[in-house]
Design a protein around this nucleic acid. Structure first.
Lengths: 194, 194
DNA sequence: GTTATATTTGAATAATGATTCATAAATTTT
DNA sequence: AAAATTTATGAATCATTATTCAAATATAAC
């Protein structure tokens, strides 16, 4: 039996990320994605049911990766809350550090996915729940200011990181990601830790 | 001479904000905006050159208002940096507090405007410049940690506030804006002030 | 109340681009 | 090497909506 050439599915998704990043979801043409992926338009539809599906798959992969990482992080008993927060921030910077296009899509298209897709935002919610747990643990251990609202905190941090990733992805040379990372850690630790 | 009925231009823009918020820019139909504004489709084009123009006008109004406010804030010599930061945060929360739809549009469509519009993002840049000045003033006065990068800081804070506004606008009852505001102030002040 | 002018209407137009599917090409089986 | 099966192609289809503009309506001027 003939076997589909191994890399087409991946090629298409990578092309989609590139085109979504450059033109945003609605400006992205399926013909352009096909061109970048070096396949015909019809082939896109052999691997993905439609344009929306392409975007959804990008987010599914991403949140799943993030969730797997945070899960093993949350479990580690050798780390204190301070270290866990540290690694949590690293998680985001690491996953995007060699893929600015992915960062752009992540920042600018999530609201589209959340609005329209019926599908798996499961990992997203699971990730958020774990993040909350880490913060709650910190409050219980009296390491984090207990007057801070956990939900507010997690969204504030995520929002700050997202916008910084977006700025960085547009012009990676302007401010190096390493500088951003250090500043973020400083503000967060001084801001929320006792 | 017949005079255009006074409120149509405003009615249309308010309807646009509502529809952009609910369906996002690309999902927003001109026919729906016309319906909400109680005018015909043709009338939209008497007051605005096209759909994009509607979105651009929303942002022009908004950033202009914000700029005017921050300008007079920056000038005040009776306030220290701590108070200025305080009022700066209030600025955002006040302007959106009775208009969640505007908050949604602000958060989710800015990247579309920045990407496509040739027009006045002038006030946006001016606003940012003023915000930077306030932070720099704080560093000079030894009130703000001088190791923090000014650009990183301003984007982090803006990003955090934006995501919180978005969450709040989706479900205003979930976390009251007043709680969000207090938490944000706490984190920022403890995080960046000496 | 008739004419002139400004404003409003919404059906018709026109452009765009996602998706389909009949056909072709590649690979495997016999 | 012919048949069978799977994978790939891209021109043609189809649906969607922003935008236009000839006609209608409202107001003002006389």
């Amino acid at each position: 039996m003939r076997v589909k050439e191994g890399t087409k599915e991946k090629d298409i998704l990578e092309a989609a990320i590139k085109v979504f990043a450059q033109h945003s979801y609605h400006g992205a043409k399926m013909s352009k994605i096909a061109e970048i992926a070096n396949v015909s338009i019809g082939t896109l539809y052999l691997y993905y049911v439609n344009k929306e599906d392409l975007l959804v798959k990008v987010f599914e992969n991403l949140w799943k990766k993030l969730y797997v990482e945070i899960e093993s992080l949350a479990m580690r008993e050798d780390l204190g809350v301070t270290e866990k927060l540290d690694y949590l921030i690293d998680l985001f910077f690491d996953i995007f550090s060699n893929n600015p296009d992915l960062a752009t899509v992540f920042v600018n298209e999530q609201h589209h996915v959340m609005r329209n897709a019926e599908v798996d935002v499961m990992y997203y919610h699971d990730f958020m729940a774990k993040a909350e747990l880490i913060i709650l643990e910190g409050i219980k251990d009296k390491k984090i200011n207990p007057n801070l609202n956990v939900k507010v905190l997690r969204f504030f941090i995520l929002g700050g990181i997202k916008l910084l990733l977006d700025i960085w992805a547009k012009e990676p040379k302007l401010v190096p990601l390493s500088a951003i990372r250090i500043n973020v850690k400083t503000v967060i630790k001084k801001g929320i830790l006792n």
